[in-house]
Simulated scan of single mutants.
Amino acid sequence: MPRIGDRAPVFALPDADMEVFDLDEMVGSKHVVLYFYPRDNTPGCTRQAVDFSDHAQDFEERDCVVVGVSPDDCPTHAEFRDEHGLSVRLLSDEDVDICRRYGVWQSREADGVRRTGVTRTTFIIDKRGIIRHIFRNVAPRGHVAEVLDTLSQLQTEHAHANP
């Protein structure tokens, strides 16, 4: 898994409209909140996506784009987006290559059964493409507020470091 201070692994993935989002194109222009989630239309994933969408203006004011990544395919993302009125861009990583590169495709045991899947994780990537913060094992409730607070702290630190 990449660490804070590392250059974020670059990738290009299709979104719900099958348009490609290229992380490399964001370098120099926008901060990126990259969140990985297990599946569309599950209660926690829906809460998280709706919450990010409800705060789209707050992220825009911080010069930040939010993208969600899961192994679901593009048509499933489109249905999920349309059903819940989401504004967040949802990216499809069907072969879980990017999930693996970011270290979020993990094996865990629950009720004696071993399963492999996405561990809910969020990365804040600055305009230089550097990972500034990582939220691991995210609980959906209150997560967006946490991300916004952290973004504000990082911007304050940056302002003091570069007067």
Rank of each mutant, 00 (worst) to 15 (best):
V113L: 14
D82W: 09
A139S: 11
I131E: 04
L86D: 00
D17H: 10
H77K: 05
K30D: 00
V104M: 03
F80A: 03
L23C: 04
H84Y: 06
P75F: 09
D95M: 06
A16N: 06
R115P: 04
V138Q: 02
A159G: 07
R89T: 03
T42C: 13
M1Y: 10
A56C: 10
H133V: 13
P71K: 02
V147I: 13
T121L: 05
F135V: 06
E60C: 08
K30Q: 03
C74A: 11
R132F: 06
D15E: 07
P2V: 13
V65E: 02
H143G: 11
F52E: 00
R39G: 05
R39F: 08
V144L: 06
S29V: 12
V10K: 07
R62A: 06
L151D: 02
D17R: 14
T76K: 06
D73E: 13
S70Y: 02
R136S: 14
L90A: 08
H158M: 11
Q155P: 05
E109F: 05
M1L: 14
V118L: 08
D54F: 04
L148D: 02
Y102F: 14
C99A: 15
D17P: 04
V138C: 07
V67T: 11
S87C: 10
I4T: 12
C64I: 05
D15V: 01
P71W: 01
D6M: 10
A49M: 04
G85V: 03
L34K: 00
P140T: 04
R47S: 09
V65D: 01
V118A: 06
D111K: 10
V147P: 00
C64T: 12
H55F: 07
P71C: 04
E60G: 07
T119Y: 09
R136A: 13
E19H: 08
G103E: 03
S92V: 11
D63H: 06
H158P: 01
V20E: 09
I4P: 06
S70R: 01
R81C: 05
P9G: 09
V113D: 14
F59K: 00
T122Q: 01
L86I: 02
M18D: 12
G5S: 15
K127S: 09
V138T: 05
M1E: 10
D72Y: 03
D6A: 14
G68R: 01
T156H: 08
Q155D: 15
E83Y: 08
G44S: 14
H55W: 05
D54R: 06
G112Y: 03
A110Q: 15
I131Y: 08
C99T: 08
C45M: 09
L151H: 05
I4N: 11
I124Q: 00
P163C: 03
E25W: 07
K127D: 09
R39Y: 10
G117P: 01
L91T: 00
F11E: 09
A139Q: 10
R120C: 04
D93F: 11
S87D: 15
L91Q: 00
E61T: 15
D72C: 07
H55P: 02
D149N: 15
P2I: 13
C64M: 08
V88R: 00
H77W: 03
D97F: 08
M18Y: 09
L13P: 01
H160Q: 14
W105M: 03
P14N: 11
A49P: 00
A8E: 00
T46G: 07
R100G: 06
G85M: 06
V104P: 00
D82P: 04
T76I: 08
T122M: 02
G85T: 04
V118M: 07
